[in-house]
Design a binder for these strands. Sequence first.
DNA 1: CGTGACCTTGAGTAGCCTCAAGAACTGTGG
DNA 2: CCACAGTTCTTGAGGCTACTCAAGGTCACG
Lengths: 256, 256
Amino acid sequence: MFSSRPLPECGSVPSDAQASLQELKIACSNCNLRELCLPLGLHSRDVQRLDTLVANRRRVRRGGALFHAGDPFVGLYAVRTGFFKTCVATEDGANQVTGFQMAGELLGLDAISHDHHTCDAIALEDSQVCVIPYSQLEELSREFVELQHSFHKIMSREIVRDHGVMLLLGSMRAEERLATFILNLSRRLQARGFSPSALVLRMTREEIGSYLGLKLETVSRTFSKFHSDGLLEVNQREIRVLDEAKLRKLVARNQF
Amino acid sequence: MFSSRPLPECGSVPSDAQASLQELKIACSNCNLRELCLPLGLHSRDVQRLDTLVANRRRVRRGGALFHAGDPFVGLYAVRTGFFKTCVATEDGANQVTGFQMAGELLGLDAISHDHHTCDAIALEDSQVCVIPYSQLEELSREFVELQHSFHKIMSREIVRDHGVMLLLGSMRAEERLATFILNLSRRLQARGFSPSALVLRMTREEIGSYLGLKLETVSRTFSKFHSDGLLEVNQREIRVLDEAKLRKLVARNQF
DNA sequence: CGTGACCTTGAGTAGCCTCAAGAACTGTGG
DNA sequence: CCACAGTTCTTGAGGCTACTCAAGGTCACG
């Protein structure tokens, strides 16, 4: 059904550079995520101006927290390898996964507003992040127009993404939500050089459900339905997209 | 039940300055929204540095669009008077209200990411906005640290707000959603000098429903239930909060 | 005063949730 | 290597919330 060779980790660096990366200087200009991450859109000669900014890395073990809601805000984090979820909670225990972040994506943007984090960021696999001290980012982006613009675009993109999730949560049914989710994951993995059709989910059914506003049983049932309809091959967390066109049709259904 | 004197418009300027404002120079330093709007957090001596930035106003009639999804991005808009909704749509006609904006709130942040707007902004009453040309905002915020920081906070605050809506849409039931909505409106009106208990809704039941992920009938029924439970007085679009404590208890219910 | 938009309420139903049981998988220690 | 515990996933049965469809009321406005 699936080859026994384990699929590469979602957030890992594609194979070519994997072995040598650890020895390289920590620097955006060396990083093969520069097409996705904060340097997005910067001219290659400008990227090295970021190297002073991003000087530290941090490791987070699977299940560990990069930060918790309430923690003081010191900096943003760029996922280097691994996979995270962010979730918000109310005092009474209600919990909502607000996003899943993979290599090249930024964490911590919510914290700028109140100088402390407003959500938890939990690693779903052993991960590594680049630390971007916020005051230095502000300073550098004052003298470096392209960085300023790039950073604004990243924040704006997060707002647009959130609006998409609101659309999903507010007006789609279970099948549409899950199809949207799978296609989104697929697209992001593809942008990182992985197969868009063979995915390994890093999160539980419950976490998917929380993100999509569904219960875990509904997620499981919907996966089973997609399986029996021939849209997906589902084997626990290994998913293979068999009929992307039909998945897309589900997303762009005509409700009226 | 309600006094026959019309309540002041949600987004209007509190009475003291209303008559003379039109004659004043368009300037943040003259504006009585400066505690809420872009100048938020700036020292008063700094606010006049914004005056060159915000030079134009635009009027939008009730029902008219400030911008549509797809329109090229030229600038942000600060609501001066009136009331807006923003909504995103899919090709197939599904539609989701992503927010309601009143005086002092910014519109258009989503457009930075792709240089064109990604949602529609529709005026729900005759409104007036200040135009903030984006390139000038970037320029000024490079030489004006506090503005830079202020602007970042505003974007971040929008992200935090969106996460709150995701929590609402993903894990609350109809009564909790509507209670959250009413309390949020109440708080924002209070911050603008209006009564926190006597509100006039600017939007239809359908628009509320779209924002909250409910059908208009459900919104209407829930209002009726709140009415018969003594939480609200409901008379079409005139709402009076009778028991704020019970409303709050609904929001912070213990689900587990 | 008539028209159209908006709101309310009722009856019946669909979709998702809850509760429950068991299977599959993961990791640990012997 | 296997046994065991804990976690995660699947599937079924039944129930409830919010939806759909429908009818009538209210309000604003020409």
